[in-house]
């Protein structure tokens, strides 16, 4: 197992390197210039470029950037003068993570419950209701759900706040809006996965042992149904946790979502790279965690090595 993880880590680092390289050059191919403002004179522009080291040849800038990256320094924003990318991420990520974790938690809990319910009562009304919810969640973009929720509960009914992040009641609407898609996804995955599991022989064995319905579902069905969801969780966690532009903007949550969009619009090269690198690290880590989780959830997936070792059980 440790060897496996080490290998995966090395590949992960490499992947990140390729990612950063590509983005480094790609973003500079975008037409325009971060310092171009109608009022900024040419001399000032030249000085700004010199200040940020952008007057040096591109390759030199690239290696300088990599060097800084190894020290953990993502550089300084070109637009937010004086602010380091690190401190921007450090300040905004907790909000995105908070929002994301709550949404993920809600999606997981509700999704698993709805999926289980739908599978247990397959073909009946509850099943159709759950599937309907899932279809709506998957088809409706999060900004529509977010706007609808805000309109109904915050503006018309005035029972919940319309934005900001100052307490539990502030989290309700954005978390629900953000969780919808993931919830729908998990519901459908859980439903189909569990439907397969329900008809397996070992479930009959479990029932024949005299276990209660709940025990059969909880101990025997869920663990075996959950694997497809674990697969999907990796990229999903990365996406949800690193901020979503729309929900954060709509509910005035000071997370990192807006930087993904605005840094490209403003051609803030270091910010774009910083965001990309951060997201990349997150994604790669999340996938690594998922791989490890596999091994824990389903012992059959022994991560290749140990299977050959001890096949000594042929006594009969």
């Amino acid at each position: 197992m440790p060897k496996y993880i080490l290998k995966r880590c090395i590949i992960a680092v490499f992947t990140l390197l390729v990612l950063i390289t590509i983005i480094f050059f790609l973003v500079r191919l975008l037409p325009g210039d971060p310092f171009n403002d109608p009022k900024v004179t040419d001399e000032v522009r030249a000085r700004l470029e010199a200040y940020y080291g952008m007057d040096k040849p591109l390759i030199q800038q690239y290696f300088a950037y990599l060097g800084n990256l190894l020290k953990g320094d993502f550089g300084v924003s070109l637009i937010y003068t004086g602010r380091s990318v690190n401190s921007t991420i450090a300040q905004t990520f907790p909000y995105s993570a908070d929002l994301g974790l709550r949404a993920l938690g809600l999606a997981l809990v509700v999704g698993l419950i709805l999926g289980t319910l739908a599978a247990q009562k397959a073909g009946r009304v509850i099943d159709y209701v759950c599937v309907l919810v899932a279809i709506i969640g998957v088809s409706m973009p999060d900004f529509i759900i977010g706007a609808l929720l805000k309109l109904i509960f915050a503006i018309k009914l005035r029972v919940l706040p319309a934005g900001l992040w100052n307490g539990f009641s502030y989290t309700i609407l954005p978390v629900v809006a953000l969780s919808f898609y993931t919830l729908a996804l998990i519901t459908r995955l859980m439903r189909s996965s569990m439907l397969e599991v329900i008809h397996q022989d070992y479930i009959l064995t479990a029932k024949a042992k005299g276990l209660s319905n709940f025990q059969v579902i909880w101990r025997h069905q869920i663990r075996n149904s959950i694997l497809p969801i674990v697969t999907v969780m990796g990229p999903l966690v990365a996406a949800v946790l690193t901020g979503t532009f729309v929900i954060e903007s709509m509910y005035a949550i000071p997370g990192m979502g807006k930087f993904y969009v605005e840094s490209v619009h403003d051609l803030d090269y270091t910010m774009v790279l910083g965001m990309t690198a951060f997201y990349g690290i997150f994604l790669v880590s999340a996938n690594l965690v998922v791989d490890i989780l596999y091994g824990i959830v389903d012992p059959r997936i022994k991560l290749a090595e140990s299977k050959q070792k001890a096949d000594d059980g042929e006594e009969g």
């Binding site: 805000k150 915050a154 319309a162 934005g163 900001l164 903007s249 709509m250 005035a252």
Partner: peptide, 17 residues
């Protein structure tokens, strides 16, 4: 002074924040 999107600000004005 908060920093937020213009549309979100308008909604928050309507709800009194």
């Amino acid at each position: 002074i908060h920093v937020m999107d213009q549309d979100a600000a308008f909604d928050l004005m309507r709800t009194g924040e």
